[in-house]
Design a protein around this nucleic acid. Sequence first.
DNA 1: GATGAATGAGGCTTCATTCAT
DNA 2: CATGAATGAAGCCTCATTCAT
Lengths: 221, 221, 221, 221
Amino acid sequence: MNKKSNKKETAAPLSKSALRRQREREQRLETILSAAQRLFALDGYHKASMEKIADAAEVSVGTLYFYFKNKEDLLVKLLSQIGFDLRNMLGSAFVGTDISLAGIREAGRIFFDDFCPNHPESLTIFFRESVGQSEVVEAHRKKIFDKLIDDVCQALIRVSENQGARFQSNLSAEVMATSIMGMFERLAYQYLIWQDRSADLKVIGQDAIDFIIGGIENLFR
Amino acid sequence: MNKKSNKKETAAPLSKSALRRQREREQRLETILSAAQRLFALDGYHKASMEKIADAAEVSVGTLYFYFKNKEDLLVKLLSQIGFDLRNMLGSAFVGTDISLAGIREAGRIFFDDFCPNHPESLTIFFRESVGQSEVVEAHRKKIFDKLIDDVCQALIRVSENQGARFQSNLSAEVMATSIMGMFERLAYQYLIWQDRSADLKVIGQDAIDFIIGGIENLFR
Amino acid sequence: MNKKSNKKETAAPLSKSALRRQREREQRLETILSAAQRLFALDGYHKASMEKIADAAEVSVGTLYFYFKNKEDLLVKLLSQIGFDLRNMLGSAFVGTDISLAGIREAGRIFFDDFCPNHPESLTIFFRESVGQSEVVEAHRKKIFDKLIDDVCQALIRVSENQGARFQSNLSAEVMATSIMGMFERLAYQYLIWQDRSADLKVIGQDAIDFIIGGIENLFR
Amino acid sequence: MNKKSNKKETAAPLSKSALRRQREREQRLETILSAAQRLFALDGYHKASMEKIADAAEVSVGTLYFYFKNKEDLLVKLLSQIGFDLRNMLGSAFVGTDISLAGIREAGRIFFDDFCPNHPESLTIFFRESVGQSEVVEAHRKKIFDKLIDDVCQALIRVSENQGARFQSNLSAEVMATSIMGMFERLAYQYLIWQDRSADLKVIGQDAIDFIIGGIENLFR
DNA sequence: GATGAATGAGGCTTCATTCAT
DNA sequence: CATGAATGAAGCCTCATTCAT
């Protein structure tokens, strides 16, 4: 690739116009990602053509390819953003998990009461539109899942240590964490993507969390 | 090829040749479905072109369209078959669920110990390749999920009645059932589709089931 | 049209490059239509594949679909052009029709002496290749025929008014106009499309016009 | 190899069963032609697949190919039948044409009052569905048109001889005959195929015939 | 004679990607 | 940097025709 080295990049503090340009650049990137997110969620990844996305973002197709290597890259970037948002929201909650499992409770509440109603498109893309699209995308999904699972896992291990309890097997924590992610996933798919029962999501989340708490306690010996 | 037979012995509703033809028809249909399943799981739904499927099934493209309306129909039929198999395996176990929750345990064991190692392609199609492909396919996935969830739900309700217990909310049973399906799904995805840790699946299943049992009991009042 | 409002449009007269681009666009469109006309007339609508047309127009298949929605649209656009040309040629003649029926004579002369020898392909498409291809195309053919018939009809009504004559029935003018179109059509089909007797077309046209004139006068009471 | 055995021709009177078989054969052929006519007129030549025709005729596709060489042959045979019917109806009328032009009048009446309302499908096929389908079909259409035109032509020549009149040019008779066919064609297309104004057809026919009569007389010197 | 499953060439169309302006 | 016209590979699907039973 023929990157023409910009002399000004290496230079000192960015000039005013350079700053503005960078800001504009980031705004435009955001606009595109946002348009893509909307269309992917609405029409599906395949039916959302690059031209439609360009139209929705009010840029030309060429511009799309200036900001993203290809369509797959667009999805991957979107996925990264979603993954970041998810982890951002849930992460801090999990970190606060102690003997009382309050962190787990809080994380569940945040997911069902905050994230689901406010970011249905993100979840649609993460749980539906990015599934089985290509090896690269799958690898990214896996990475995100692994991180989220790991977050939960760490929380569970901390709990067990605090309680002086031991897991049934050395896989238990991981299995539990994975299970919890699976629950979140399918409940969101069922009650948000397939049906729109966002009104019930609070109750659903409550039940789900109680289910989890019980499950966790049962795996301690 | 043992098709030499006495013509004069035919005396039934369907003639011998008609029977044979029907048998051949079903066999061919099975062959195609099987080839499609293999390719969908291996290459992915989109990369598996109708021509490749025809080649794999050793028939012509036209024949594919003689047996199936279009590519989507092929996937739907495959999905129905998978749904049927899944329900068939798990259904009877759930039915045997009583106070002891033995049926739930058994169903989990069957899924992780029997189904997962023996039908990885089916699960790949059900959990990955059929996701987000079209409205029609999604409708079919939903129907299958709904049935499986309902099976679990019925089992849970039976347990609660036997125990004289009550659910926390009137959604509890449904939420638990959905959660259980989500656990199965993600665990299979994680440990069978993304990694191949089928060797660990027994332990994983065990942990998962214990998690479930604990969760259930916690939702009884 | 889904064109995003171009700042340039509102701003000022189109820039030089924009003008050139538009000119090129129209030229290319013309090139494609012309190639399609040639192939439709020569090979027939069905045998003229989009690929052949692309080759003949020296563009790629994709370009065809950039300018036309689909093959049918290509035919429809072609038809519109032909309809426009026909009406343009005949229209002014009919308008000049007075008591002497000179306009009718002139229109006939123009059709047989000018249009037929110079636009045989147009007539082949209008009278042969666009027949019975689809509901949409038929609708367009009907619209063109209706307009042409109406042109003749108006001329006839004007004559009758000038002569103070009345038509036998209130349908008479329409029937005559339709008949005249039918004559033109079949004569062109017979002596231009099926046989190439363009040399005789002058005489044929003369006879046809005399036939018409006599016919018209007989319908006046 | 489609050679019908010649034995029957040379052999003695046909046996009872042979007669029956031949009758059945002809009936079946008629059934197929009738089904094809219906479907061609309704769905169009291309959209009417051989399978649909077979279904409509309640035979198998294979049987279609026993009675007709291919789809084109089916259309050609249909066309021949239609051509025969048309000529049969109009022919005798034209033959009776004398100084009074009564035969012409009668032929017009028969076409508009009898044929049009009773055989709309035949006309749809002759005037629309068989147009521009292939060289072979076009050749057959031309042959039919040529014969019909010739019938009219002979009648016109007879009239001229009876009247001791002469045509303007040596093409005049042919041109007039062709024009008359064109009128019939377009009027049927306009008022029967495109619109259904069969109720007006009587009046339309009357006007058309008067137009013709006037036209003819004008071409005599 | 009749059947209908099987064939496969060929058509239309889509759309991610490129590149000259 | 932005544009959008142009590309062309690749996919799905149709359907006239054949042939073993």
